[in-house]
């Protein structure tokens, strides 16, 4: 049970990292993840199925990496769409995200071959690989947990490095004061586009992992996922205050694990308080409200709801 919560927390924690990047770093309230998360799941699932049907070679590291990269790219493509809608047509972030997410519902159905659900029973290279990679020495669930931990650590480590590069610092500044970025001779549009693609790429990666872990991909994977990600980010922010980006990223993962733990508790023992599975979304909403009330920090987005009227290249 504990392994399960931790693994789920880490898998969905990568999605929460994407939500953190768009909402907190870029100050771009982005709902695209509701489309990019299932896009990553669908892309990874269809590749795994095709790969298995081709002859079902043994699950190896190579195919696992390809699956994850594909999930990332599928998510990033959704991010690109949102960015284009926002920047070219001057559509506010929330609406741009809704448009993309709506369109991607159909795109995801197409990726899944017209069916709303694709099970990965026969061939699930990522899950099988992760369960077996330690040779069964410590049991498959623990192996899986270690694999998830390593993957999450790699993602956080890479992101931490990234946010210390020129591009990363530029993205950070973009969310705080766009004028400072413009003053540095940087096209804010291309920088923001990169950030939105990164955030949704992480959502897609998380979707690919979730599909493998759950053993199926579903077009409705994305429903309610923004709220789950936001709740994770906010719970993390309640845990500790820091200005170091690396710790902020870790805090998102912690928040995600805690959020999954709370959801598990509600599912398992909620009946004692009259809470059923149907109430989980309400619980998520209340968590977000509670976190905002405690921290006194609503979503930042006071500005940057509309792109500035910079002329020229988009």
């Amino acid at each position: 049970m504990f392994e399960g919560i931790l693994i789920e927390g880490l898998v969905y924690g990568i999605l929460a990292l994407g939500v953190f990047i768009s909402f907190r770093v870029l100050d771009f309230p982005d709902l695209t993840v509701e489309g990019s998360f299932p896009a990553g799941a669908a892309a990874a699932a269809i590749l795994a199925t095709r790969w298995g049907a081709q002859g079902g070679s043994t699950p190896g590291l190579a195919i696992s990496v390809i699956l994850l990269v594909l999930g990332f790219l599928a998510g990033a493509a959704a991010g690109l769409a949102t960015s284009a809608i926002h920047h070219r047509l001057k559509v506010p972030p929330l609406l741009a995200g809704i448009v993309t997410m709506t369109g991607f519902y159909s795109i995801n159905l197409r990726i899944l071959g017209g069916k709303p659900n694709l099970p990965l029973i026969k061939f699930n290279p990522l899950l099988q690989g992760a369960r077996d990679w330690l040779g069964g020495a410590i049991g498959s669930e623990l192996s899986l947990l270690f694999a998830a931990l390593i993957l999450a650590a790699v993602v956080v480590g890479l992101l931490d490095l990234f946010f210390h590069t020129e591009i990363g610092i530029g993205m950070g500044a973009l969310g705080v004061n766009e004028a400072a970025v413009v003053q540095a001779g940087v096209n804010p549009i291309s920088l923001r586009r990169g950030g939105i693609m990164l955030a949704n790429g992480l959502a897609g990666l998380s979707g690919a992992l979730a599909a493998s872990y759950q053993g199926f991909a579903d077009v409705n994977f994305g429903a309610g996922i923004v709220a789950a990600g936001l709740a994770s980010v906010m719970i993390g922010e309640l845990l500790l205050k820091t200005q170091f980006i690396g710790v902020q990223l870790l805090r998102v993962l912690l928040g995600s694990i805690l959020f999954r733990g709370l959801m598990y508790a509600a599912r398992s023992w909620g009946y004692l308080a009259g809470i059923g599975p149907n109430d989980l979304r309400l619980l998520t909403a209340l968590l977000i409200i509670g976190a905002m009330a405690i921290s006194g920090r609503p979503l930042r987005g006071k500005k940057a709801q509309m792109p500035r009227k910079t002329r020229g290249s988009a």
């Binding site: 590069t165 020129e166 990363g168 610092i169 500044a173 705080v176 004061n177 540095a184």
Partner: peptide, 25 residues
């Protein structure tokens, strides 16, 4: 300036004009 960033990061941002690169700032 970007208020929620360190003095050093602000200066690093401003120390060069033009597109950002993927190297430590």
């Amino acid at each position: 300036t970007a208020g929620e960033m360190t003095i050093l990061d602000n200066l690093a941002l401003a120390s060069r004009k033009g597109p950002r690169r993927l190297r430590f700032a």
